[in-house]
């Protein structure tokens, strides 16, 4: 007997990391300089979780993937032109700030609320995926709070692998310190899983998949509801770039080992 899941992936956009990301004090709090004008990408950890979700759905016929994104809908629309080509999914869009300076609790409440409102949601089949971290500002707390809001007790963070076992339970590998994995077995859905990188490569673009996705994505963008986020929910005393900065150098044909050693040396200061 196969197990069908409804996999809800929480993920939104972050500024393209190749851009200059300079914190500034905006009228409503900290922001990044020219943030709205910068090109965006799907938050990389959320991206991994989306690809894992699509892969899981493919292996379990009857499963469905829904992407819930909280971000400025015009920017999300641009983002969809890229990620809608990767894997099949449906979109639920919440129109609001995707800034890294939003309060993660507020974001979690908004996302959990949107999940609850998904028509026909069967919580016994629900898997909530997302990134265990974010490239915008790594509080790493949103997924746990979504779980709390939804009343889901099984939460796994920094997961790299999920294998569904016969009978519907699944085995999850979570990253722990020292390059080790914690191996857990979960009885089944519902569960919340914050993904690390997973094991899957980024799927190639496929405009045909994109064309199919866009039939539902465009209406979803059009009917996006404003997310009720309070900008004063959290106060930042100051915002600055990390003191320890790594200057990018471009050196051709450097062996991977050498790059790794250099990074380790840099981290150790």
């Amino acid at each position: 007997m196969t197990t069908a899941f409804h996999i809800v992936v929480c993920g939104s956009l972050v500024p393209d990391p190749l851009q200059t990301l300079e914190p500034i004090q905006g009228p409503t709090g900290p922001a990044l300089k020219n943030e709205m004008m910068l090109p965006s990408v799907l938050d990389p950890w959320a991206g991994h979780s989306l690809f894992e979700a699509a892969n899981l759905a493919k292996q379990h016929p009857g499963s469905k993937v829904t992407l819930i994104s909280l971000g400025p809908k015009a920017k999300l629309q641009q983002l969809m032109m890229i990620i809608a080509q990767k894997v099949p999914f449906e979109l639920v869009c919440l129109d609001g700030s995707a800034s890294g300076f939003m309060d993660s609790r507020e974001v979690a409440v908004a996302l959990a609320g949107a999940i609850e409102k998904i028509p026909g949601l069967d919580k016994t089949k629900l898997l909530v995926f997302g990134g265990c971290s974010s490239a915008s500002r790594d509080a790493g707390t949103t997924m746990q709070m979504i779980a709390e809001q939804l009343g889901v007790n099984d939460v796994f963070l920094a997961a790299d692998e999920l294998k569904v076992q016969p009978g519907g339970s699944f085995r999850i590998l979570e990253r722990i310190e020292g390059g080790q994995y914690q191996v857990s077995t979960c009885a089944g859905a519902p569960a919340v899983i914050g993904w690390a990188t997973g094991n899957l490569p980024e799927p190639p673009n496929n405009p045909q998949v994109g064309m199919t996705n866009m039939r539902t994505i465009m209406p979803a963008l059009q009917k996006a509801q404003p997310a009720a986020l309070k900008t004063d929910a959290i106060k930042f005393a100051s915002v600055e770039l990390p003191k320890q900065q790594r200057q990018t150098r471009i050196v051709k044909d450097t062996p991977v080992e050498e790059i790794a050693q250099e990074i380790v040396t840099w981290i150790k200061g």
Partner: peptide
């Protein structure tokens, strides 16, 4: 403030409403 991005190009080259084209561009 920034180099012209896809939003600007789509308007100037008149394919704001052509999602098929936007996807081919990204792909």
């Amino acid at each position: 403030s920034t180099l012209p991005g896809d939003d600007v190009r789509q308007i100037m080259w008149r394919f704001t409403d052509r999602y098929d084209l936007q996807m081919v561009v990204q792909s």
